[in-house]
Nucleic acid binder design. Sequence first.
DNA 1: TACCTTTGGTTGATGCTACAAGTATTACCG
DNA 2: CGGTAATACTTGTAGCATCAACCAAAGGTA
Lengths: 162, 162
Amino acid sequence: MTEPHWLTPEQLAAWTRLVAVVELLPGALDTQLQRDADLTHFEYFTLAMLSEADNRSLRMTALASRTNATLPRLSHVVSRLERRGYVRRTPADDDRRAIIAQLTDDGWQKVLATAPGHVDTVRQNVINALDERDTEDLRRIMAKVLDRLDPEGRFGMSTGPM
Amino acid sequence: MTEPHWLTPEQLAAWTRLVAVVELLPGALDTQLQRDADLTHFEYFTLAMLSEADNRSLRMTALASRTNATLPRLSHVVSRLERRGYVRRTPADDDRRAIIAQLTDDGWQKVLATAPGHVDTVRQNVINALDERDTEDLRRIMAKVLDRLDPEGRFGMSTGPM
DNA sequence: TACCTTTGGTTGATGCTACAAGTATTACCG
DNA sequence: CGGTAATACTTGTAGCATCAACCAAAGGTA
């Protein structure tokens, strides 16, 4: 036995399965979105977060928080989305360091066109596998884990639609 | 917005939290392993799977299965690990197409040295946040999701015991 | 035998992410 | 005020993952 059983068998079983999901899920999401919309899941998620925000716009920092991303990563992604015409950057009025990212009409249309297929994939790969109790349990457990991964709550978690 | 298959608030809450975990967990694991052992989590996991196998060796295909990886990805990673002296490649006797990856003594020592700190991180970020019931629920739910992500069980953990 | 398909694995190009600087603006503090 | 620190964001680079293309061996078929 290599990894000395500092975890109980039950803990180990839960952990290995979680690791497998963490490894496989991103690929499943990216494959569908790449094929159907030429978007990575992170790009789609970024557009989706903007689409739900007031005025379909957010400061980069706030957007980074909602997408669980670092600012450098977001900056690159927004650059790509801007180049494709889905997002517009404008300086903020109140703070001249800040930049506001806003969804363009094209970006809004892109979200509308992409969401149904994406939701289908989510259902297919995750949601439909779970009954009501599973869903509640999953929410409870992921909330607890998130509290460890992000104790300060720097990364916000939207409760609105995807 | 026509959404024939949208998600209930409870499903949505579970999903967004799962997505956040999937986004944040790899970084947490990679950061610790990179800092303490100069390994990515996937590299460590690959070494760990080898260390548990008979004779500390596995065919590339079997190793890919246990690490939830594609063969191209694994091939690149094993090349790096081989270059660093942790793994050795040898042709298989029974099938001349096949390659057997075996953990070297250095690789074994690397796993021994790295495991404790890694398990600490796993506990800190996930396991310690969960009580017994959570752990059981997590295992059950991840098994169900894996069954969707990998219906054929090509990757190791889809069903069955550890 | 010859042929076609499948399996096992590697390799190279492309693209995204993480990390480390760097710039510019604002906040803090004596 | 003046100076330092902290915040907001961008950019360049290095490294890993993905995908397509490729080769070689094995299995099937006639």
